[in-house]
Amino acid sequence: MADISKDQVKHVANLARLAITDEEAEKFTNQLSSIIKYAEQLNELDTDGVEPTTHVLDLKNVLRKDEPKEWITQEDALKNAPDKKGDYFRVPSILE
């Protein structure tokens, strides 16, 4: 595994929907490189045949009936919105 490059950092920032300055990209490149280098110690371990743990409790398929019920009103749902119009959240234009 190679060091993370500044271009990769910018690509990852875009995937994560973060706007970062060139200066921040520089800083993150250094910091993420050292964290990733540190994480590479995991390669010392032979994990062939080891099952990955996604969850510590042995829970499977917790199901419930799909029934509508009272939860929040439309008015409630909108009340913390930074911008709204009528019954909708309002956002800037999606298409250029």
């Binding site: 990733i36 995991l42 371990l45 994990t47 080891v50 990955p52 743990t53 996604t54």
Partner: peptide, 12 residues
């Protein structure tokens, strides 16, 4: 290389 590997080490 990272996520799945870490999940396996979590098992250990």
């Amino acid at each position: 290389a990272f996520y799945k590997k870490a999940q396996k080490v979590r098992t250990l």
